[in-house]
Design a protein around this nucleic acid. Structure first.
Lengths: 233, 233
DNA sequence: GAAGCGTATACTGTATACAATAGACCCTCT
DNA sequence: AGAGGGTCTATTGTATACAGTATACGCTTC
């Protein structure tokens, strides 16, 4: 008799703490600019400071938190120019992603991609009034992430994850109304179809158009929030 | 009487430890596959385990070390397919970098870039027999990094830094002979000149050509080291 | 009221202790 | 000789203690 599955490993406290803090930041519960105080977090999460410190070091390296002038850590704040810069990075990486997806994605993967768009559409129609911003942004990024994954390039996926995290922060900072949900699903479907044709040039043009439109929308929203920033830019 | 400079802040042990470990990994002193044992590192660096753990968490998030099946940390090992994938990411990001550099780099910055190429050439000619691999790769990556910096996009620079680190690891793994040093400086000069013309399409073509040549060289070298990998790919 | 100083408290950086787990080594049995 | 079990040692995960630094608050002086 052989046992086919090893016993499940319980996630370490440090790992659980990391996930909790990361989700809290990306959902906006810990807001940009908030100071992260080890002793308070340790009390709230009912762990010692050790897993807090270790999780914060990882979040620091990810760029989601940064040291302030007094040595304390704060959630980063994403400015208009950050938004532009992040979109530039994103466009570069996602163009590479769709090009590689045209070359390497299996038919099975493309089917999965189509399925997940359909699921997103159904989820959005069923729950349009109850999905919060975090959840809807997650649907958006999950689509893009699946394309990256379909390239078989884990480094590309990891780099894009970092960009998506910061854009999540940005979008949480800006979104007081729902993104144009059905439009986005339609654009996703269009991108997926161009990938399925295996025509890299068309797919690249489609993703670029999609992201440039998104860039304009987000940057405009950010500038509307911060009139003084727009005059500085 | 006012004092114009604050007192210098000494780097924390955690920060010093991080830099030491990172340099040891990138120089090959801690080799790919080596296990990183907290207690031993703490003894060697004469600090407690705390700054070791914190530094290792950051290196883990950077992807330079990874957890093995038993929960211990090891320096990652970069395979042929990793090499290909990293070059794909690099090409995408560096094409964006040269395009933005054509748009945004100040004339002052371009002069600085030319100067640093000249310095590299002088350093290489003066010390061709004594510069080690790490130092020479550093000169190479410094050039590329300066282009990224000239875009004014800190996120792009950070993403590229991550890619460069892993390629440093890869190159340390493969380099038993000097890279073609003078050829690289000539290619760098050529890239810099195309950026100075502010012609993005030409600059993009130049960086792509440069990186594709490098990709072929490095992948070939890796495959030569690992004959079994080439049959698997 | 505002500014400056002193004190108390809170926070951060680091070392150390304890418990759980992994790995090495030795002994016994087949 | 090889396999299995037990014990010892080393390592990792986590909590706690201590020292240095930052911040808040209260009091005094102008």
């Amino acid at each position: 008799m052989t046992l086919s599955n090893p016993l499940p490993r319980r996630a370490s406290l440090h790992e659980q703490t990391y996930q909790t803090l990361r989700t809290s930041i990306l959902s906006g519960e810990l807001a940009p600019g908030d100071r992260l105080v080890e002793t308070q977090l340790a009390t709230q999460l009912e762990v010692s400071r050790t897993p807090i410190r270790e999780a914060l070091r990882q979040l620091q390296r990810e760029g989601l938190v940064a040291v302030d002038t007094s040595g304390g850590l704060r959630v980063i704040s994403v400015s208009v120019s950050d938004a532009v810069h992040l979109y530039d990075c994103r466009i570069a990486l996602e163009q590479a992603a769709v090009r590689e997806a045209c070359l390497h994605a299996s038919d099975r993967t493309l089917d999965d991609l189509q399925q997940s768009i359909a699921q997103s559409e159904r989820a959005v129609q069923r729950a349009a009034s109850t999905l919060n911003t975090f959840e809807m942004l997650n649907l958006d990024y999950q689509f893009h992430r699946k394309i990256a994954e379909s390239t078989g390039n884990p480094w590309l996926t990891d780099l894009l994850d970092q960009v998506f995290d910061k854009m999540m922060l940005l979008r949480v900072q800006t979104t007081r109304h729902n993104p144009r949900v059905l439009d986005i699903c339609r654009e996703h479907r269009q991108i997926c179809e161009t990938i399925a044709t295996r025509d890299a040039a068309t797919a690249i043009a489609a993703i670029e158009s999609h992201l440039n439109a998104s860039k304009v929308r987000v940057v405009t929203a950010l500038e509307a929030l911060q009139p003084s920033s727009s005059t500085d830019v």
